[in-house]
């Protein structure tokens, strides 16, 4: 990503905030006051700052999961399902395995979540790579399967037998250390950042990442230089699934302490949006995830203190996506024209 596109992103943010301000005025509120409260709601006080990071972690990881699959040219709408299955796997390992030291228990939970979700991600990857099945349809449908399956599990075999459908609480040894109390932000934040850096390093500094990127960019070229594009596509989807599963595991082990039925209000879809706005650039993913987390957290404060409905923030996000998409459209058009020129 070049300097100009960073600037373009910043400009897009400002423009969407301006359009949001106009909407707030139309609703009869003071936009300055609303944005001030939005800012306070996100940055003032441990609880608010913690709230931002609480939202940031799953957003960033799911955005990263989407971006990784996009690198092998799979449009993976199934991160939400991977998140659910990862969460369930971590919850089960968290309460069913007892007497483990945290240094063992936490990685075991993470690993199980990543294996389960990675295997789940491999299915649409293999279907697309070997049989050209449209991954968007498959992943959308597989989300339902994953979410209903976890609903079944919390209702029956893994139920805590409480009034709300959830699993038993995980062992203390599986819980992630919290800080910035009273918020629920936890060391999952550092895990997430570590994973981001690791994924970036793998993609840009290993031979495996080299194969992965070229497969996504030009599968015909990859095949010709001796990279097996189909295999690589499946591996890309396994990595993407594992990251989505890790996001779910951190939600369970750091935030809830158990698997709660329907716990995610579409986190992975917000993550997908963050990645799309970032044009699947790994370096931009955390920036956009943080931006969305700030807006979503601050919106609560804004609503409480000014009465501006917090759904307005979703409008601003939508406008933002629209603007970013238009920008992407223009850059694609330019690229398309350039390649047509050489290709014809």
């Amino acid at each position: 990503m070049t300097r100009t596109s960073w600037g373009a992103t910043l400009l897009t943010i400002l423009l969407s905030l301006a359009i949001g301000a106009a909407a707030i005025m139309l609703l009869g509120y003071d936009p300055v006051e609303a944005y001030y409260q939005l800012f306070r709601g996100a940055f003032v006080g441990k609880f608010n700052i913690g709230g931002v990071f609480e939202r940031f972690v799953p957003l960033m990881l799911t955005a990263l999961a989407f971006a990784v699959s996009a690198k092998v040219s799979v449009f993976n709408v199934g991160v939400e399902g991977e998140l659910y299955l990862g969460a369930m796997a971590a919850a089960w390992a968290g309460y069913a395995l007892t007497g483990l030291h945290p240094v063992v228990h936490v990685p075991v939970c993470f690993a199980l979540a990543m294996v389960v979700a990675g295997a789940w991600g491999a299915i649409p990857g293999a279907l697309k790579a070997y049989w050209r099945v449209n991954e968007v349809c498959v992943t959308i449908l597989m989300n339902y399967v994953a979410i209903f399956f976890t609903s079944y599990l919390v209702g029956n075999p893994f139920s805590a037998r409480t009034s709300i459908p959830r699993t038993p609480s995980i062992e203390e040894s599986a819980k992630l250390l919290r800080f910035l109390k009273p918020s629920r932000v936890n060391i999952g934040l550092f895990v997430a950042i570590g994973v981001l850096l690791l994924v970036w390093w793998v993609l840009y500094h290993t031979t495996w990442g080299f194969r992965l990127r070229h497969t996504g960019q030009n599968p015909d070229f990859s095949e010709y230089v001796g990279i097996p594009p189909k295999k690589v596509m499946v591996w890309g989807m396994i990595l993407s699934g594992a990251i989505g599963g890790l996001a779910g595991a951190i939600e369970v082990m750091g935030i809830h302490g158990h698997f709660l039925d329907n716990f995610s209000p579409g986190i992975a879809f917000d993550g997908m949006l963050a990645s799309l706005i970032a044009k699947n650039d790994i370096r931009m993913v955390p920036v956009l995830a943080l931006f969305l987390a700030v807006l979503k957290t601050g919106a609560l404060g804004m609503e409480r203190f000014t009465g501006v409905p917090k759904t307005l923030i979703d409008t601003i996000i939508a406008v933002f996506i629209l603007l970013a998409a238009m920008e992407a459209l223009f850059s694609w058009k330019r690229r398309g024209a350039a390649s047509a020129g050489e290709g014809a």
Partner: peptide
Amino acid sequence: NLRGLDRQSDVKENLAACSF
């Protein structure tokens, strides 16, 4: 353009694609 090069990549990656 179809097979010989990965046009979304740079010259060094294209040159190294068989020996990386």
